[in-house]
């Protein structure tokens, strides 16, 4: 009996020892740290880093949907050069992306601070009003964009119905109302409007969080020193929410610049390709026109701008921490 049990005991001891050694290893930051990073690293490596590299490669080829890789030719920078030198729609896209991002960001920032200040002094119905103004940012963008598609309808637009009746009521005569999505400038303005509608709550709720970190004594001190309401806003409120402003702006600029859904639903880049953003034009070229290589090049043109914003953010964060 004892002879038989002896080897068993040995294995128990040694596996126990091994477990202990493994557990001891897990106490070391250099082991546990990497182990805990693995799941995240795995997903990011396979579905972000690798596709990014693959996209750079694709943009240097004439790859099309359904084309076997044996026929795909390396064409160097041809796609990029073609876009810049021969493609008028591409330049419209570049201009639109900057106009859309610039205008929407400034207006969302201003409306966001205003709304945050209003929400901050609210007493009654606080929860329900916050939930209500957050709604545009929460619901799936394409679904609210569908509602706007109907609001901007050429024949049945409720805005135009209201304008028409308002004009009649005031005795200003007959008005038809503009074709919101059929005129290039107005269409870009309309999609920008929807972006502002969707994005303002994000700014507001973030600024609200920032406002609540400001020490109320600062306001009292400023008031005692005789600062006016505007001066208090300028010298206490704005500096107080500066850290969160940087985060919000960076995040929002990236999301707006790379936006897809609003334009996709409202105009598909039309009329006559006048409202494309980088993402919708890349989609148009690659998925509708099946020229994957060229489409990859279009979307990679976003990269320098995104990289610039990201680097700015990193430098800013580092400076804040130092």
């Amino acid at each position: 009996m004892s002879k038989e049990s002896h080897p068993d005991q040995l294995t128990v001891v040694s596996s126990n020892g091994r477990r202990k050694a493994a557990l001891a290893l897990l106490e070391r930051p250099n082991v546990l740290g990497y182990l805990l990073m693995m799941p995240a690293a795995f997903i990011i490596l396979f579905f972000v880093a690798y596709p990014f590299g693959w996209g750079v490669w694709m943009s240097l080829t004439n790859k099309q949907i359904g084309m076997p890789w044996s026929q795909v030719k390396f064409t160097g920078l041809k796609n990029y050069v073609d876009l810049v030198t021969k493609d008028g729609i591409f330049w419209t896209t570049v201009r639109n992306s900057f106009v859309y991002t610039g205008i929407a960001t400034v207006i969302k920032w201003a409306l966001g601070i205003w709304l945050a200040l209003l929400l901050n002094r609210m007493v009654r119905f606080q929860r329900i009003v916050r939930a209500a103004v957050l709604l545009p940012w929460i619901v799936p963008t394409v679904l609210s964009a569908i509602a706007f598609l109907w609001i901007f309808d050429p024949d049945f637009s409720v805005i135009n119905w209201t304008l028409r009746h308002f004009y009649g009521w005031m005795g200003w005569g007959h008005v038809r109302g503009p074709l919101w999505l059929a005129d290039p400038t107005l269409a870009l303005a309309s999609v920008t409007f929807v972006n502002i509608w969707r994005g303002t709550p994000f700014y507001a709720i973030s600024f609200l969080a920032g406002l609540q970190t400001i020490n109320p004594e600062l306001y009292e001190a400023a008031a005692i020193d005789g600062a006016s309401g505007w001066q208090r806003f300028w010298h206490v409120t704005l500096p107080g929410i500066r850290p969160i402003t940087v985060v919000v702006l960076v995040f929002s600029i990236i999301v707006t610049f790379s936006d897809f859904q609003i334009v996709y639903v409202l105009t598909r880049g039309g009329p006559a390709n006048s409202t494309h953003l980088f993402a919708t034009y890349a989609y148009q070229v690659a998925m509708v026109g099946s020229r994957l290589g060229l489409g990859a090049a279009v979307s990679l043109f976003m990269f320098p701008v995104l990289a610039l914003v990201i680097v700015f953010q990193l430098v800013y964060l580092r400076r804040e921490q130092a």
Partner: peptide
């Protein structure tokens, strides 16, 4: 470094990757 890399990934929009990703 890993923290910064993850943060950068956070800021990479899907619209930058969707074409090669569909291939992958």
């Amino acid at each position: 470094t890993l923290g910064v890399l993850i943060f950068i990934t956070y800021l990479v929009p899907p619209t930058l990757l969707f074409i090669p990703l569909s291939d992958v």
